[in-house]
Design a protein around this nucleic acid. Sequence first.
DNA 1: CTTTTTAGCTATCAAATGATACCCATATCA
DNA 2: TGATATGGGTATCATTTGATAGCTAAAAAG
Lengths: 200, 200
Amino acid sequence: MEPLTERQQQVLNYVSSCLDQNSCPPTLREISEHIGTAGTVTAMRHLEALEKKGYVQRREGSRGIALTNRPNIPVPLPVVGTVRAGAPEPAIEDISGYVSVDPSWIKGTGCFFLQVKGDSMIEAGILDGDLALIQPQPIADNGQIVVAMIDGEATLKHFYREEDHVRLEPRNRNMASIIVSEAEGFTIIGKLLKTVRNYS
Amino acid sequence: MEPLTERQQQVLNYVSSCLDQNSCPPTLREISEHIGTAGTVTAMRHLEALEKKGYVQRREGSRGIALTNRPNIPVPLPVVGTVRAGAPEPAIEDISGYVSVDPSWIKGTGCFFLQVKGDSMIEAGILDGDLALIQPQPIADNGQIVVAMIDGEATLKHFYREEDHVRLEPRNRNMASIIVSEAEGFTIIGKLLKTVRNYS
DNA sequence: CTTTTTAGCTATCAAATGATACCCATATCA
DNA sequence: TGATATGGGTATCATTTGATAGCTAAAAAG
């Protein structure tokens, strides 16, 4: 990454500290005041330089500053107990909390944690109560574990596309595979990225 | 915490998602537009309610919204493939990377991730390659899963103290328990807090 | 039956804010 | 020598933005 001038570094640091303290980027005038310059032009120039060098991304509107390179700052993801049919992202009222995870864990946007219910995947090492990190997506590859919506219930299953139907395979010798023909009240919510289990 | 009305939840969630996506809280009008109301009053009322109930803190100035119970302190933990005998904390040269986790996940200090090797706990849903979050401590309670040092090898086992010896029990019907009398080249590294598995 | 809470509306204002135009000085680089 | 990047300034403008006043309505609580 291109090196910064002292002044640019100062601005970048200030933006960063604002985000840490207020979870809100500063205004041009706040930056100006902090680095001791009058007007807003200078601050804006520094931001332009920071953007050109790739340290910052700017949006339209007030306080439209975002840092591009915040490595390893955990991303808070919602934890839900249930998933609603048709909804690509978790319903607001279902969110029971937030868990921050390493950004390297997630892919794309809209990831969330789903609390696993039942023993259908017990032989794949996924137990009742585990947290499943889900990346929302409407399709899946063969063999992947997906969250699928069947009869208004969200379940974790292995996904296999076969001829004219889809087979959702549990990993529990007491349970049978579920065969669904596509587009009949069946949706893939997303695919499984990680599972987390809590002890103690 | 006081329960929220549906509308208030909706606002809170929107603020939260804005912070996730833009690292910047929304304006009153952005909130209004999102919840489908005209003007700015209604959004402000909801924010007032959210503040009164303690979900939100407001500052002066534009976009002066901050979530109160937002996990924000990043806790980077080392990931190791092996553990050395005698060492309470992972040796520097064994660290293969860092993963940041939610502060609520860890207890005490010195926690680290250990990459699980082998199938000895497969029936407890802990598979080869899983990451085990370990809290270092020299003792354990009966039934807990611990990382124990046996013959220079770190292994994950159920811990049982029995009469004059300690039994380390795998969860794999092809493996037998290990009986060790204490203080003979046997150490407990720490106890298992969480396991994480990666898919894809 | 009144009060409180929740939820909404229109309209308006002063302050905050990003953006722009135009200007200056210094250093580096071609 | 002239172009380019850096760093700074004043002034101005159109929007954005938070805030307030005044109004309505339904539901719950007392």
